[in-house]
Design a protein around this nucleic acid. Structure first.
Length: 818
RNA sequence: GGGGGAGUGGUGGAAUGGCAGACACAGCAGACUCAAAAUCUGCCGGACGCACAGUCCGUGAGGGUUCAAGUCCCUCCUCCCCCA
């Protein structure tokens, strides 16, 4: 008997030191074993890890360790998403340089990750704020410039007055900044864009093809909505007075005979020439309102211009209006209103007393009456009063009418996308400098490749507000033009940090390469990534940009895969007070305290046990005790039984059979959880059950059963509690080597099998008794046994048996009447 | 408004048409202890009941399908996420 107590902190710190061995978690990529790339979203180095990180990385690490043990060559890297606003905000607040702040956070968090025992191949660590990483952002930028993917345009952007920076559309949440929640204002600036729209079709297509099975359906749906492809037609109405064309975009050209007005965006080029007097004042107010508010928030308003347009299909005159809900950035900036068949148009025309004219009837109904119509009929149906298309199903009319427009040169079949090009310019210091020079004579001149990286200067003033700090650094700004040598200005905008995270997982394959972002041969074995694990919060932005970047890299010839990630797992958020943990919200729970008190193993086990991984989880520490108790019981159990396990031989006992049965059942369950849905909470519950059973039979175990149990227990526990399992393996069992290098045990179905089936007997669906029978007992025998059972008789006697349902080895249900 | 989730004991959760509440937390009672911690044992959805005798009720609400529904279908309520 041993009276050792479980002391996680000392054993864990010991193994942390031993696990610094750079070979231990080294991915080889040499074809010696089947490769498997397990990737978790790299953290932003905000200061300390929080429980969301612990959860994400505990899931990934359990999987990585399991895959190692299943014989894979596992690539399991980590790095730092190290550029971004918080560093600059910290610089202003704490008078600390963003670089120093970031790198000290990285150092601290790295030590936390090591302390948690995650199996990362640290030789591949990537830190995006270092020049040896971001020079390749610049290299990609130049490649995209050459290919016409990167371009410049004057554009209205979302300006956050508090962060003093431009936000991407995706970074605006309900008109407010995603980080600081300040109201966003529009602003005109010359910006750099990536032409992600050039890949819109392919990005959409793949969501129905290669991603269909490996990505969560809801992420695919979100991406499809974001891309927002709609198939429609553009048709020219004619301004009656001048004959100039007004092109409208519509997805329902089959309803055009029901168009009763044309509505222009306030910013439409024709608008200004059509309005005067009071109408002009109203239009200007609309434009001003667009600047101030999110278009979704404004109350719908319209104003009649006094002009008319001619419908190209029936030559009918319809009034031209201006509407504040018509967006210049979508379609053509002008729409035709068909109130009878579009809800928004219906509301608008009702409001202003514009005619409503039904032209589509339901397939099994009559055409609505214009005088009494209560709501728009928006489905497809049958055309009525639509010239040559009358009587045609509107789905067919839609195609035919678009063709007619093309043949008669007043329109085209058109596809529009909701997704816009990716604005990457940021008026910020702490990001990748955009590698171009503005020369008064030559214009925009790319920095030559051999002059990369354009390094961020270290000596910078942080005033806190206003323009980019880089503009104040004359040694950075004032350069000579690479083409003509005349004095020129360096671009002072930096890149969106989503650039960094769009390809970091490629750099892991070849992190030290000084000649290219990566060597294609080194990336090839690992892509596409077998499994990516991260928060659903990145379902749109990060994952679409990464997919886009992959396609660009493929077109440049760096990789051959079309998509970066085969399987995506989105783990639920860890929340506190109903909100995601984040430093800016100040609701972060730091794992250090828990690790100091209970150890990293308990911390990992608990985060996995508390909820299934894909579910959101409200942080609540009560329950940690349970997993600590469990590990402590495992420790003491193994210590107590190692001596016995050394004396193999002796007769197998009844206790052996029961303990081994539970052992192999548990192994079956845990393996199945890894291979299918990752419900590690139930795997850990099964391990708890196993421990309960083992202690129950402990006294009567034979030496050889004990030996098998102790060994299998260590192996099975390893993905969840690497430290304890390794300690027991090496110190108590005296075994050689690292558990991660051992083979995952194989469950024996014979040993796992129950002796007999315990069959519940129901009467009218209510449980009345149970019997235990050998497996495979035939139906008629089961029925006999059931009817003979005393408890069953009490509910059946004197009644008429209508039916007996028997599912062999499973259940008996006797249906009675009376 | 549209799309997608979710709703089960005091709590986290389990159960993918077949015994609702596995496993754990908290709680209660007991053992050990001078005492506490740790550990161990027992109880732990509700009602009736002397009861680990039995019966009835019970998975947001109501209906349906089925021998059998937390699970499938319809209607409704509440909450969360995404998009307008």
């Amino acid at each position: 008997m041993s009276d050792k107590t479980y002391d996680p902190v000392s054993m864990e710190t010991k193994w942390c030191d031993l696990w610094r061995d750079p070979d231990l978690y080294k991915a080889r990529g040499d074809g010696s074993r089947p490769p498997y790339y397990v990737l978790e979203m790299f953290p932003y180095p905000s200061g300390k890890l929080h429980m969301g990180h612990v959860r994400n990385y505990s899931i990934g690490d359990a999987l990585a360790r399991y895959l190692w043990m299943k014989g894979h060559d596992v690539l399991h890297p980590i790095g730092w998403d190290a550029f971004g606003l918080p560093a600059e905000n910290a610089a202003i607040k704490n008078k600390m340089h963003p670089r120093d702040w970031t790198l000290s956070n990285v150092a601290f968090m790295k030590q936390q990750l090591i302390r948690l025992g995650f199996s990362y191949d640290w030789a591949r660590e990537v830190t995006t704020c270092l020049p040896d990483y971001y020079r390749w952002n610049q290299w990609f930028f130049l490649k995209m410039l050459e290919r016409g993917i990167a371009y410049r345009k004057n554009a209205q952007v979302n300006w956050c007055p508090d962060c003093a920076t431009v936000l991407a559309n995706e970074q605006v949440e309900e008109g407010r900044c995603w980080r600081c929640s300040a109201a966003v204002e529009p602003k005109e600036l010359e910006q750099w864009f990536f032409r992600i729209t050039a890949y819109a079709d392919e990005l959409l297509e793949e969501t129905y093809k290669s991603l269909e099975n490996g990505w969560p359906e809801r992420v695919l749906t979100m991406q499809r909505n974001w891309i927002g492809r709609s198939e429609g037609a553009e048709v020219d109405f004619t301004h009656e007075a001048t004959g100039s064309k007004i092109r409208v975009f519509t997805t329902r050209i089959d309803t055009i005979y029901g168009a009763t007005c044309v509505i222009l965006a306030p910013q439409h080029p024709l608008t200004a020439s059509l309005v005067s007097g009071g109408a002009a004042v109203e239009v200007n107010a609309m434009i001003a309102e667009h600047r101030r508010k999110d278009p979704g928030d404004v109350e719908k308003k319209g104003v009649f211009t006094g002009h008319y347009a001619v419908n190209p299909y029936n030559q009918e005159k319809v009034p031209i209006w201006v509407g504040n809900f018509v967006l210049m950035g979508y379609g053509t900036g002008a729409i035709m209103a068909v109130p009878a068949h579009d809800e928004r148009d219906f509301a608008f025309c009702k409001q202003y007393g514009i005619e409503i004219r039904p032209v589509i009837r339901p397939a099994d109904g009559a055409l609505a009456d214009a005088a009494t119509i209560k709501e728009a009929f928006v489905d497809y149906g049958v055309c009525e009063n639509t010239g040559q298309w009358s009587g045609l199903p509107s789905v067919e009319a839609r195609r035919s009418m678009a063709e007619y427009a093309e043949n008669h040169n007043f329109g085209i079949a058109a596809i529009t996308f909701r997704i816009k090009d990716w604005g990457v310019s940021r008026q910020r210091y702490w990001g990748t400098p955009i590698p171009v020079i503005h020369c008064p004579a030559c214009g925009v001149v790319p920095v030559p490749y051999d002059q990369l990286p354009v390094e961020l200067p270290y000596e910078v003033e942080f005033s806190g507000k206003g323009r980019s700090p880089l503009e104040q650094v004359s040694s950075f700004v004032n350069v000579s033009c690479p083409t003509c040598n005349a004095p020129a200005r360096r671009e002072t905008d930096t890149m969106d940090t989503f650039v960094d995270s769009s390809w970091y997982f490629y750099r892991y394959c070849d992190p030290k390469n000084e000649h290219a972002p990566l060597d294609p041969a080194k990336a090839a074995p690992w892509f596409p990534i077998n499994q990516y694990i991260g928060g659903v919060t990145h379902a749109i932005m990060h994952l679409i940009y990464s997919r886009f970047w992959t396609k660009v890299m493929r077109d440049i010839g760096l990789v051959s895969n079309n998509e970066p990630v085969t399987n995506l797992f989105t783990q639920g958020m860890v929340q506190l007070g109903g909100k995601a943990m984040s430093k800016s919200r100040g609701n972060v729970v730091d794992p250090d305290e828990m690790i100091a008190k209970y150890g990293a193993d308990t911390c990992r086990m608990f985060t996995l046990f508390a909820a299934p991984p894909e579910k959101d989880m409200e942080w609540n520490e009560s329950g940690v005790q349970g997993q600590h108790r469990f590990l402590s019981r495992v420790y003491r159990f193994v210590c107590r039984n190692t001596e016995k396990a050394r004396h193999v031989g002796g007769e197998p006992t009844e206790a052996d059979r029961k303990a081994l049965r539970k052992l192999h059942q548990t192994l079956t369950k845990v393996s199945a959880d890894f291979d299918s849905r990752w419900h590690f909470n139930t795997s850990i519950a099964a391990l708890n059950e196993l421990q309960n059973t083992l202690e129950e039979h402990e006294a009567n175990l034979s030496g050889q059963a004990a030996a098998q149990i102790l060994e299998t227990l260590c192996l099975m526990l390893h993905p969840f509690a690497p430290f304890l399992s390794q300690e027991l393996w090496s110190v108590e069992l005296g075994r050689e080597g690292q558990l991660i290098r051992q083979q995952w045990p194989q469950a024996d179905p014979e040993l796992a099998r129950e002796e007999g089936a315990e069959i519940p007997i129901q009467v009218n669906g209510k449980l009345r008794s149970r019997i235990t029978v050998p497996f495979g007992t035939p139906k008629d025998q089961l029925e006999q046994l059931a009817r003979a059972d005393e408890k069953v008789k009490a509910h059946v006697d004197g009644k008429q048996v209508i039916k007996v349902v028997i599912v062999p080895d499973k259940l008996i249900n006797i249906v009675v009447k009376g």
